[in-house]
């Protein structure tokens, strides 16, 4: 086999391994929220994973600074909330979870994801 093909094979395997590690093996840092949290919406949600207490009303303030159309809506399906996030404008959502568990939220097209852990 020619040298260039061997190089391509080695780089491709490394590329696949990197892609897998980079996107699928990331550790989500969980942020513990007491009463209120600001979530920055730019290329995803930061913080991405928040943990809140069951039965307690928590305010989540979304601030979108990323013009990507996909992020212009946030959907918290388990809490029946779908909100427009106008650019550079804080949008507050209040939730009072009644059940313990992990509840995902996403953008309107289900591409960017975040998680609310209720404890």
């Amino acid at each position: 086999m020619e040298l260039d093909k061997i190089f391509v094979i080695i780089f491709s395997i490394a590329g696949i391994a990197f892609t897998y590690w980079f996107f699928l093996m990331k550790k989500e840092k969980e942020v513990n929220v007491e009463n209120e949290v600001d979530i920055k919406v730019s290329g995803g949600y930061s913080p991405e994973v928040i943990s809140i207490a069951k039965g307690k009303t928590t305010k989540i303030n979304f601030l979108r600074t990323d013009p990507t159309e996909c992020l212009s809506e946030v959907v918290l399906g388990d809490f029946k909330i779908r909100k427009e996030l106008p650019l550079n404008q804080k949008v507050t959502i209040e939730i009072t979870p009644q059940k313990v568990g992990e509840f995902g939220y996403s953008c309107g097209m289900n591409m960017y994801h975040g998680k609310i852990v209720v404890k």
């Binding site: 996107f23 730019s42 290329g43 995803g44 949600y45 990323d66 990507t68 960017y112």
Partner: peptide, 11 residues
């Protein structure tokens, strides 16, 4: 514009 911040989030 959408890709760069997403990559920062590893998504």
């Amino acid at each position: 514009r959408a890709t760069i911040p997403a990559l920062r989030h590893r998504t």
